[in-house]
Design a protein around this nucleic acid. Structure first.
Length: 610
RNA sequence: GCCCUCGUAGCUCAGUCGGAUAGAGCAGCCGCCUCCUAAGCGGCAGGUCACAGGUUCGAAUCCUGUCGAGGGCACCA
């Protein structure tokens, strides 16, 4: 995290979002006093490290440590420890800090007062669900596009990870003050959709009693039968065409007894025949029926997974509005396209791509890539400060060409971040669950939710870094044991609720007013650990949001739950000493609040009893 | 072949912008319920951070190369 650009400002204890930013302000002031501006733009040599303030790993080094003296010694013309001395002298006093010392090669270690930690409890209780949220995004508009699976079939478990990851990235950005626009790009045009329409029609013909060979490249899932059955129910035989006519002039399929055939030409021939035999209106109806049925299913599926979108963006309307044409013309005007072999090519190799790419095919149809150029152009034209795409890792080769297109259009490609999510592999009984999209034999997201539940699914999907392959252990996700991190964390929450129920049952009068001084009674090691962990929450949310790293929240919550369970086992909360009891109840109420806030960000519920 | 990502304890993974003695969980071993939920807690053991160089006060982290795993290299989307 950079140190911010705000000028020297009187520090006010409560105004800072976290104790870390409070200390940063102190340090910045000291640096300013010595004329070592940290607000200057980064030096040309970006490899020069910048001063940082970090949590220490070893308590002997205090609570926070800064490497400022080490990093700035050279430019200041001083030895690190000498510079550290001067910084120490220039450091303003603060009630948070009890002691500052120089250690090792020139680290500056800050020891914080117990009060600094105690005050985090009333802050959490006052801010409630808002605790951990901040305004560092300053209302900047950010677009997050995720899932965007083709509406040619139900979502499967591979899409689930992108869905969970994208949802949390978006929510995190919103939590730190960005104006987030969540979007699903609907590929409702193009060849794959035509293949779906043809697949539906062929299954319909089978329901009508026609016997026909199903194309090897058609969509074979059961859902295609369902859509075909709906068509047949509503329209009887009105769309029926004899088998011989359907296959007239269609090149042979490949596979099975015809290894010499051509799958692609075969399915394209069937699509062409379907369009011609059905005519515009009837073809359109079949097409729309397939699209809408599947899209409705996807919407419903994602809603039940806890995902909401601000917008479902149609590829078809994009091209109908002329955006694709306009994008290509802009590239043409800028001199970045050329014709070869009857097709129109974008010279993406001039902008860092491996090779040039076709935007208009020989048959006159624009490519999916052309739509994507138009779509990304449109995103930037809509005025988003940042645009985030979340794609499956198998699309990584696609990143350079999209960025190339934006650069060629004269846009700033650095406004686009593409986050690549690796695949999730399911394990059941220690065995890898085999899946194959080809045969339609895949586990759907809905099935996964039904098997392990929404909470476990959401949590497991985001508990690893996105570029890490995910081993999704179904048995673990279902197990109601401490091994299961979801239950472990939720159990901590339920335990706090349980203690409060006990207090109520015993008729104990709790004084939970914010500032009564009882918090000074929290002196046990477990209490100090808990306070330290609670005070980290805002920092975790900030780094998780800015780094697009939901797993940090998952890891943090596990730590917090662990600290709580340790405390629970070591000390009784409902003691007879009322001040101590009130202090402990306030502390665990703060724990409960932070658990809730964190789980909420992950889309996981916080049950009151288990 | 070229490109991208990854390689940390037996297994699954954290490790902040390069920071001080590399951390969790599981599995293993030893303990802890007359007590707010044992769906819990404590302890022990476990490491050449794939390998080799380089950069510097300092490298698991940055650079180069090698090896290994996954993915990508369409007038498909």
């Amino acid at each position: 995290m950079r140190w911010g650009r705000c000028g020297p400002r009187r520090h006010r204890l409560q105004a800072r979002p976290s104790m870390k930013s409070e200390l940063q302000a102190l340090l910045r002031e000291a640096l300013g006093t010595l004329g070592l501006a940290t607000d200057a733009p980064a030096p040309a040599d970006a490899r020069l490290p910048r001063p940082t303030l970090e949590r220490t790993r070893d308590p002997a080094h205090g609570d926070f440590a800064s490497n400022a003296a080490l990093v700035l010694a050279r430019s200041a013309g001083l030895r690190p420890r000498d510079l550290a001395e001067r910084l120490l002298a220039a450091l303003p006093a603060s009630p948070l800090v009890t002691r500052v010392e120089i250690a090792g090669p020139g680290f500056i270690n800050f020891h914080l007062s117990p009060t600094a930690y105690h005050q985090v409890v009333p802050i959490i209780l006052q801010q409630g669900p808002a605790f951990g949220r901040s305004r560092i995004g300053a209302g900047q508009r950010v677009q997050v596009e995720f899932v965007s699976a083709n509406p040619t079939g139900p979502l499967h478990v591979g899409h689930g990870r992108g869905a969970a990851y994208g949802a949390v990235v978006a929510d995190l950005l919103a939590a730190v003050g960005y104006d987030v626009h969540r979007e699903y790009y609907v590929n409702d045009a193009g060849r794959q959709m035509d293949i779906l329409a043809a697949s539906v029609w062929l299954r319909y013909l089978e329901l009508c009693g026609e016997e026909l060979p199903f194309p090897s490249n058609g969509y074979r899932g059961d859902y295609v039968w369902d859509i075909a059955a709906a068509l047949h129910r509503e329209h009887g035989d009105a769309y029926r065409v004899e088998r011989a006519v359907v296959f007239a002039g269609v090149p042979a399929d490949a596979g099975g007894d015809r290894p010499d055939g051509d799958q692609e030409a075969h399915i394209d021939g069937l699509v062409a025949n379907a369009k011609q035999l059905l005519g515009d209106n009837r073809y359109r109806l079949v097409f729309e029926l397939g699209l809408n049925t599947i899209l409705d299913d996807i919407r419903d599926d994602l809603a039940q997974f806890g995902l909401t979108y601000e917008e479902w963006y149609s590829e078809r309307t994009l091209s109908e509005r002329g955006a694709v044409h306009r994008a290509i013309e802009r590239l043409r005007t800028a001199g970045h396209v050329y014709e070869r072999d009857g097709a129109l090519w974008f010279r993406s190799s001039a902008f860092g791509d491996e090779k040039d790419r076709v935007v208009v095919r020989e048959n006159g149809q624009s490519t999916y890539f052309a739509s994507d150029i138009a779509y990304h152009m449109d995103k930037l034209e809509r005025g988003f400060a940042r645009v985030i795409d979340i794609w499956g890792a198998d699309h990584h080769g696609y990143v350079p060409r999209v960025k190339a297109a934006l650069t060629a259009l004269g846009d700033d490609a650095s406004r686009l971040d593409v986050l690549l999510v690796q695949f999730a592999v399911l394990y059941r009984g220690g065995e890898k669950v085999q899946m194959s999209t080809r045969s339609g034999d895949f586990v759907t997201l809905r099935q996964l939710r039904q098997e392990v539940g929404r909470d476990a699914a959401r949590f497991f999907y985001v508990m690893r870094r996105c570029e890490q392959h995910l081993d999704f252990d179904l048995d673990l996700a279902k197990s109601q044991s401490a091994d299961n991190p979801v239950y472990y964390i939720q159990y901590a929450h339920a335990r706090v609720c349980s203690v409060l129920r006990q207090a109520a049952d015993k008729g104990l009068a709790l004084d939970l007013a914010p500032d009564r001084g009882q918090l000074e009674r929290l002196t046990e090691a477990q209490e100090n650990n808990l306070l330290r962990t609670l005070s980290r929450y805002s920092e975790v949310i900030e780094t998780a949001a800015l780094g697009h790293e939901p797993h940090q929240v998952a890891t943090y919550l596990r730590d917090l739950a662990n600290d709580f369970h340790t405390y629970y086992n070591a000390h009784q909360f409902l003691v007879t000493d009322t001040d101590l009891r009130d202090a402990r109840i306030k502390l665990i109420l703060a724990v409960r609040q932070v658990l809730r806030n964190g789980l909420d960000l992950l889309g996981v519920s916080a049950p009151e009893r288990m």
